[in-house]
């Protein structure tokens, strides 16, 4: 699966489900958690979304603010599991 496809699915999920604003213009490198857009509890939802949508498991220890703060970071982490 291409990373752009992962990114678009993630963008839709984050804007619709986590930010409650499907029209939000989320940038690839925009900090989502450290900027206060979303709280770190939402990382659990991103973990489960990756399981359901891409059939990959991101370990709990990797669901950290440092490693998952931007769309790019999350998409790349998922892509790494998808392409294993």
């Amino acid at each position: 699966m291409e990373i752009t496809e992962i990114k678009e699915k993630l963008r839709t999920f984050i804007c619709t489900e986590l930010l409650n604003n499907p029209d939000y213009p989320l940038q690839d490198d925009e900090p989502i958690i450290t900027s206060g857009l979303m709280d770190s509890f939402s990382l659990a939802q991103i973990g489960v979304f990756a399981e359901i949508e891409f059939s990959v498991y991101i370990p709990d220890a990797d669901l950290t603010v440092d490693a998952m703060d931007t769309l790019n970071q999350i998409a790349m982490r998922i892509a790494r599991e998808v392409n294993k």
Partner: peptide, 17 residues
């Protein structure tokens, strides 16, 4: 070891934040 496993377990059963 507590929050994320429990949270993910619950979200898998009802995937709504």
């Amino acid at each position: 070891y507590v929050f994320l496993p429990l949270s993910r377990f619950m979200l898998r059963r009802k995937p709504s934040g």
